[in-house]
Simulated scan of single mutants.
Amino acid sequence: MNNNLNPIKLTAAELSYLWTSYLADSMSICVLKYFLVHIDDLDIKSLINHALELSQKHLDFIRELFTYEQIQIPQGFTEQDVNLLAKRLFSDIFYLRYIRNMSKGGLVTYGRVLQNVYRQDIRSFYAECMTDTLELDSKATTILLEKGLAMRPPIIPYPQKLEFVHKQSFILEGLGRREALTGAEVTNLYANVLTNRLGVAITTAFSQVAKSNKVRKYFLRGKEVSLKHIKVLSSYLEMDSLGFPIAFEQEVTDSKESPFSDKLMMFHFNLMIYAGVGNYGIAVSESQRTDLVVDYTRFNMEVLKLSEDGANLMIENEWLEQPPLAANRRDLSKG
């Protein structure tokens, strides 16, 4: 790193994003290395190798930057958090769906990050992360299509004439509510069922192998929440005779030998929860039916409560690293 290029101190946003990225990429390296131990499909293996290279590249950049800036490098996740000798827990198809979902989440995250980053080296880094993730997402999508595994959103009729809304029942439930969903509503319902399907598969696997009874119960509770949300969201699509994603818990084996530490699995699941909160928030903003807005809002409250309890469990076990904090001026003024 050229010492002359970075005279400007990192902002709170830049520091926080880099810190969180370090944790997420260190976790991904552990997960992907385990995936590569048990894999048969050469196309999917190549995809996972590519994802691993990207995560390692991101981690190396942040570690070098933090060293130069004299910032404490997070502990993150290391070889102590993964058991590469553990039996296979997931199928190759799960790996493919996992990469596609994580790349979708990465595109959303990096898009948000770039809006709040100003230092040129950090902007360049996250712009490259965005480009890398877009390429990974394209490769994963291509493989899903080639193998006939892609879960496409439903098709709706093309508009044939210009029309305007004349009744409040288009939005307000109880005034002769419209039954037909808008394209945006269909898209968000389908996407949220799909991500919850992944959540069910992940919690199924993690609950099988968790060492702590409290952690196991937490994953089972998360699974119940996801299943309940799937039931409600799918019912909207079903009422309009639209398809919804099928379950893929069958891509989880019956192994009870944990490949990951409970700490890693808790962090992983809570990352998924945060992504879910964002997905529901977007769905609220793009829904024009009050019943949908009410359901999404209720789901977000349930998920946030689950997240809070997960954080408390991680604190109890000293697994939650403290993120960068602003200076406490009140304490400082006390001397």
Rank of each mutant, 00 (worst) to 15 (best):
N2M: 04
N2F: 07
L5Y: 10
N6L: 09
T11F: 05
E14P: 00
L15W: 09
T20D: 15
D25W: 07
I29H: 06
I29Y: 07
C30A: 02
V31K: 02
V31D: 03
K33T: 06
V37Q: 09
H38V: 09
N49G: 14
L52D: 04
K57F: 12
I62E: 11
E64W: 02
E64N: 06
L65H: 04
L65E: 06
F66L: 13
G76T: 04
N83Y: 14
R88W: 04
R88Y: 05
D92N: 13
D92V: 09
D92E: 12
L96Q: 05
R97H: 15
M102G: 10
G105L: 13
L114E: 07
N116D: 14
Q120H: 11
D121F: 10
I122C: 04
I122L: 02
R123H: 09
F125I: 03
L134G: 14
L136M: 13
T142Y: 03
K147C: 06
K147G: 06
P153Y: 04
P154M: 06
I155M: 06
P157S: 11
P159G: 05
Q160H: 12
Q160M: 11
K161Q: 15
L172K: 03
V186I: 13
A191V: 10
N192G: 01
N192I: 04
L194V: 04
T204E: 09
F206T: 05
K211E: 12
K214E: 15
K217G: 12
Y218M: 02
K223R: 12
S226H: 11
K228N: 07
L233N: 08
L233V: 08
L242M: 11
F248M: 01
E249H: 07
E251F: 13
V252N: 00
D254Q: 11
S255E: 03
E257S: 01
K263H: 14
L271C: 15
A275F: 09
G276V: 04
G276Q: 01
V277C: 05
Y280S: 00
I282V: 15
V284Y: 01
S285V: 01
Q288A: 10
D291Q: 04
L292Q: 12
Y296M: 04
Y296D: 04
R298D: 04
E302V: 02
K305L: 12
K305A: 12
L306E: 09
D309Y: 09
N312A: 09
N312M: 14
M314V: 07
N317P: 00
W319T: 00
W319Y: 15
P323G: 00
P323L: 00
P324L: 00
A326R: 03
